[in-house]
Amino acid sequence: MIRIFSILAGLFFVGALAWSLLWDTIGFAHDGLPNTVEKAFHEHPRPLKLSSDGWFGKFDRKQVKRGFEVYNQVCASCHAIQHVAYRDLADIGMSESEIKTLAATATVNAKDPLTGEMKDRPGLPSDHFQAVVYGGQGTPPDLSLITKARHGGAAYVHSLLTGYTNQPAELLKRFPDAKTPDGLHYNPYFANLNIAMPPPLTSDGQVTYSDGTKATVEQMSTDVAAFLVWTAEPKLDKRHQVGFWWVGFLIYATVLGYMSYRNVWAEKKGH
């Protein structure tokens, strides 16, 4: 009885699925595969090699610090990194006094611990980077987590920064309505191809590196991508290091466990 009921219930679902499939197939025969301008012209990020890549990766702290200089001199005017605190910069080789000076340039609206009122005061190393007030078109995202919040991570950031180009003539021929709107900029690495951010890194020497490295556009965009990997995952070095020893120990323990298992079962054939 239950099986007859089951077969009927099954056919009810199968019928509904077949009905949906029928109409979707007719639609598919009519429209074909979805053909959008994003599908045709969106590009995956170009590969980018950083020293933090891979299971044994470690930050190149000199590069990360250069990346911070790019952030600070270019990106910071529109983008915040609110999950990062000034004190965190000690990890990429900034001295205590540099951090203090940098923090003091920020204005922090915080509760006075004695009186309880909200007051503006100069930033302290223990403060986080503050939100950036931006009045233009679009909403510049916070960059603290950007390399974890986008497919492709650092490679995406690097490709996006260096990927601005004119709209291909072929695109306009195939999708005449897809002309980049005024105020936006064509960038094939951006999800919908048109990004509000104007090209931020345009000329060599735009940033002055404290270590004297020549600031080419390629150098700046790679460095800032490395910096944004660090802001998103500051504990990456430690994670790799702990993981290496822990997995090594586990392999040792597992081999012992396996040998012990063989011992215990030695008298039982077939295992």
């Binding site: 702990v242 993981g243 298992y261």
Partner: peptide, 25 residues
């Protein structure tokens, strides 16, 4: 005990290795 404790025991190690590779790497 001891047969399946030993067998489950060593596969716990195997499981933890794979799991830890995800957690750490």
């Amino acid at each position: 005990y001891p047969y399946f404790v030993a067998k489950d025991g060593w596969t716990i190690g195997l499981f933890l290795i794979i799991y830890s590779l995800f957690v750490f790497f």
